[in-house]
Design a binder for these strands. Structure first.
Length: 278
DNA sequence: AAGTAGTCCTGAGTGC
DNA sequence: TGCACTCAGGACTACT
């Protein structure tokens, strides 16, 4: 269940593993399709255009990994269980292989098939169905109190649903949404439009804080980037509310509550995160 | 238009 | 030990 910090950790790990940097040049020798059906159907013919092209360092937008070449970009979303590894023998749920010059072979494996592999034209990233609706990156200055306040002021949906909406801000998934709300003492059920600008500022600050902590943990404690998307990535960070239903709050000793919100399990402390009127 | 529910999928966890 | 069942989760689509 990779969220932004995990995807970023995978990105860095892959670039390091493949030695992709400004000075390197590896050619995509061959693509090998083992199982086409992920969340989308992999566009085999389009992706073949990448063969013979030089692979540039991998970049990230939201939770998507982008593998750029001169003639097109390979787009990948890890979904829940997707991960890349250097080929070391066939494994169950291997979907896709990239053979690089120099003999390196990268394999994509995805048991639950929630992932995406697609082709995006160069300079048309903004038209891609996966990328065109995306909001700002949470760690950039464009994601700030004013922006969040303006984006949600007419919305009645619970604030938790809104910060997980990739049109509003990208990269925040179910786990860090609960954690950021706890840190800012905002109740997950609070209607978005009823948050004051001050509360928006607090929440923005908390989202940045949580993601930065997780990024730092990913960079320093996750030894194997393949695991960055799995449970081990989260163990690096002490989760204060997520998955702690029925246990005591680390801050006030009240019991952590949980409830399904927007189809996702949500955790909060009723005492620390009271609803309020302003 | 906004909000909500349903959908895809497999493995891990639970209860008997 | 093994079977049946539930749950997790991102982001799309399809309803209300």
């Amino acid at each position: 269940m990779p969220e932004l910090p995990e995807v970023e950790t995978v990105r860095k790990g892959l670039n390091k593993l493949l030695k992709l940097n400004k000075n390197s040049s590896f050619k995509v020798v061959k693509l090998e399709f083992l199982r086409l059906n992920l969340r989308n159907k992999m566009p085999k013919a389009k992706l073949r255009r990448l063969e013979g092209q030089i692979l540039q360092p991998i970049v990230r937008r939201a939770k998507y990994l982008l593998f750029p070449t001169n003639k097109g970009i390979l787009l990948n979303h890890l979904g829940m269980t997707g991960y890349w590894r250097l080929f070391d023998g066939e494994q169950k749920h291997d979907h896709f292989k990239i053979h690089l010059s120099g003999g390196q072979v990268l394999v994509y494996n995805d048991p639950r098939r929630f992932g995406v592999i697609d082709f995006v034209d160069v300079n048309k990233e903004s038209q891609s169905m996966w990328l065109k609706h995306l909001g700002p990156e949470p760690l950039l200055k464009s994601f700030n109190a004013n922006y969040l306040f303006e984006s949600i002021k007419l919305r009645k949906a619970p604030i938790k649903n809104l910060i997980m909406d990739q049109k509003i801000v990208v990269g925040v998934g179910n786990i860090y949404a609960s954690e950021a709300l706890f840190l800012s003492k905002v109740n997950p059920m609070h209607p978005g439009g009823k948050l004051s600008k001050k509360r928006c500022a607090k929440l923005v600050e908390s989202i940045k804080n949580i993601l930065e902590q997780a990024l730092k943990a990913g960079g320093s404690t996750i030894k194997d980037f393949k695991q960055a998307g799995g449970e081990s990535g989260y163990f690096a960070r002490q989760l204060k509310v997520y998955g702690r239903s029925g246990l005591t709050c680390t801050s006030c000793k009240a019991i952590i509550k949980s409830k399904v919100l927007g189809g996702r399990n949500t955790f909060w402390c009723e005492a620390c995160q009271k609803t309020y009127k302003e």
